[in-house]
Each structure stands twice: as C-alpha cells, then as structure tokens.
Amino acid sequence: MRDLLRRYRFFLLVIILFLATVVLYSYNLRQKDTTTFFERAVLSFAAPFQSALDSLVDGTTDLWRNYLWLVDARQQNEELLQINRELHAQLRQTEEIVRENDRLRKLLAFVDDLDRAALPAQVIGEDASNWSRTIVINKGARAGLRVGAPVVSADGVVGRIIKIAPNSSRVLLITDASSAVAVLVQRTRTRGVVRGLGDSLTLEYALRDGDIREGDLLVSSGMGGVFPKGLPLGLVTAVKTDQFSLFQQVTAQTTTDFSHLEEVMVIVGDDQ
C-alpha cells in the first residue's frame, strides 16, 4: 500500500489539488457577492502596477498614433477639409434658399391681397448713372410684360416698367427724380404727389391745412391708372409748413429697401 502511494504520489496529489480547487470554486460560487481576503489583497497589490502599466501603454500608443504614425493623417486632413468646405457650401446654399423662400412667400402673400395676376422677376442690374434710379429685371415682352406695368415688392411699390426687351425690362423706381405717383396719406386721406429724391421721397401739392404727421403712411391713390389703390410707398419723416406757401414740405422714407432689392412682382392683370 505504501509502495502504491509512493508510486502514484504525484497523480494522487494532482487529483487532491484538483478536487480541492473544485470544492473551492463550488464554495465560492455560492459566495458571489463577497470578496475574499485573498482577492482583496491581490487586487490591492496589483492596482498601482496596473495603473502605471496602463498609463505607460496609453502614452506610448498616443505617442505612436499622434506623433509618429502619421502616414495618412495629411491625406485624411485634406479629405476632411474638402468635406468641410462642401458641407459649408451646402449650408450656405440652403440658408440662401430658405431666405429666398421667405422673401417669395412674403411677396406672394402681398400680391394675393391685390387680387391681380402678377409675375415674379429677379433684379439683374442697376442704373449705370449715379443720378437716375432704375433697375433691370429678368422678364420682358416674351413673358407678357408691357411698358407701364407696375412693379411691387413685399414692402410696397417699387416702380413701373419704362423700357422693354424680349427677355428683360427696365423699371423706373419711385425714388427717381422723374417719377411721380399720386398718393394719399392713409390716416387722413390727404392727397399729394410723391416724387423721388434719390434715396427718399418728397410729397408735393399737399395743402397746408392738410393733417400730415411724422410716421404717417403714404399709399397709392389709384389715380393715373398705373398703380392699384392702397399700395404703401413711404413713411413720412418730416413735415414743414412755410408761412407763405400754399403747400406743406413733406419728406418720406420708402417702405421698400431699394439697396437690398432682389425679387419683385410685376402686376400684369387687371382688377378682378
């Protein structure tokens, strides 16, 4: 028996150790939530080393990736910059479309109120002189426009067509010195004629006893047959009454911002 034990000592020890580990594992399976003293000790001992090793590996990897292994970084950078530029361009285009959409919506809403057929057009040029105020639009006789047709924006009257070509038209703005539009002061119905002063307007033939105040809105009177009645032209900015004059001196600011005019509507139809 002794010889047998001695002879198979090694295998017996292995079996005993195996069984012991199985028992240990089996015991610990029931104690999942408790950390043994041994485990705590090992973990506590290993943690600083693990931390240091981890930092070392991270540092080395970063060094390698960020400073040494940069073979395709330049190419990637170029590609990303290109993508960035394209996305920026798309974004700007989208913003432009959104703004244009807003302007056209306002313009359509304004023309809908008129109950008259209208044609949208884009401003493609301005007057070549500094004293005359005209613009060129991209619609002409082929689109059915005619000389004298009124042109409006979402904010009010722009002017009327004075020259026409097959695919473009010249519009005389209400701020031109040769432009004259019959108007009413909306609040008091005082009559007058608005003439252009380049960047602003002057109201002529407004009788001295007419009630006109700063901030009053000037609207087209419909007289003359060019502009429909009630379209806004300007807001009164100053009123002067000379002691010996028959008329008041009234200046007004246009309701339309002519320096930022991009789209207009040409009224082509008659009153419905």
Binding site: N130, W131, A177, L197, G198
Partner: peptide, 25 residues
C-alpha cells in the same frame, strides 16, 4: 457732366428734384 445732365433734365424733362440728387453727389 453733372452740370449738363442737371440743366438738360431740368429744362427739357421737367425733373426738378434731380438737382437734389446731383448736387450732394
């Protein structure tokens, strides 16, 4: 040029207010 434009417009085209645009410019 400014003087000629102003005179011609005022006399021939009855555009009185053109001088308000031309003179300050």
């Amino acid at each position: 040029q400014i003087v000629l434009v102003g005179i011609l417009l005022t006399i021939l085209a009855d555009t009185r207010t053109v001088f308000y645009i031309l003179l300050p410019s």
